[in-house]
Computed example of a mutant assay.
Amino acid sequence: MAQAEQGGAAGPTRAAQGRPRDTTIDARATEAVVQLLSTLPYSALTLEGVATAAGTSKPALRRRWKSLPGVVVHTFISVLGTTPTPDTGCVHCDLVHGITNLAEVFEDSPITRALPGLLSDLEADPGLRADFLRDYFEARRATSRTVLEHAVERGEIQDGLDMELALDLLAAPLYYRAFFGHQPIDAGLAERTVQSVLNGIATPEWRRHHEP
């Protein structure tokens, strides 16, 4: 009995049962959503279709993201959430760089087509909506806020600025065109947007030294 107890204590711990987690599904799901949106509207996207294109199963996708909008949020953040606004000390350069990066993805990636329908679906899932706002919207917005705050400290932006309104003004043209498609997201949109906003919020001294 004692030997059996000692053998049990010294023996290897039994491995946990179940299939190991497939670490490639995240990337394959992202690729599948982007691929499908290149030929289908968001309304035609299905969890089954994404699973087939990703070479996996609906249960595997549900275990990770619970729903189709969850997969699309993951894809949206994967595709668009990796190039925040830099903070180099040049408020004009940094804002143009940040908006240009996002504009280029919006123009080139079919994921943009999912945005209106996705936001509508998120109204039915407050938890997922909160994740989307935190991990994509607020994460990117925070980097632009930091650039403006540092510009205020350097005396380039007016003190007492309505920061949230300024951030809305910087992002609005890009999202407005992505939603409605009434005008193109062209190469000069970021420059024109930033210059227009800075003309309203920059100090007179900054404007004197940075006339177009």
Rank of each mutant, 00 (worst) to 15 (best):
Q3K: 15
Q3D: 06
Q6H: 12
A10P: 00
G11M: 12
T13L: 15
T13K: 02
R14A: 11
R19C: 03
T23S: 11
I25E: 01
A27E: 12
A27K: 11
R28Y: 03
A29V: 15
T30K: 04
A32G: 08
L37M: 06
L40A: 08
A44N: 12
T46F: 02
G49Y: 07
A51F: 06
A53L: 08
A53G: 07
T56S: 14
S57C: 08
R62V: 10
S67E: 06
P69F: 09
P69L: 14
V71E: 03
V72P: 01
F76N: 01
I77Y: 02
G81V: 10
T85I: 10
V91C: 02
C93F: 15
H97K: 09
G98V: 10
T100G: 02
L102E: 02
A103G: 10
A103I: 09
E107Y: 15
E107R: 15
S109V: 02
L122T: 06
A124M: 08
A124F: 12
G127K: 04
F132S: 02
D135Y: 11
A142N: 13
S144V: 07
R145F: 04
T146D: 08
E149W: 04
R154L: 11
G160M: 10
D168F: 15
L170G: 01
L174T: 07
R177C: 05
F179H: 10
F180G: 09
F180L: 15
I185S: 01
A190W: 05
T193M: 07
Q195G: 12
V197S: 04
V197H: 02
L198G: 07
G200H: 11
A202V: 09
T203Q: 05
P204M: 09
E205S: 15
R207W: 01
H209P: 01
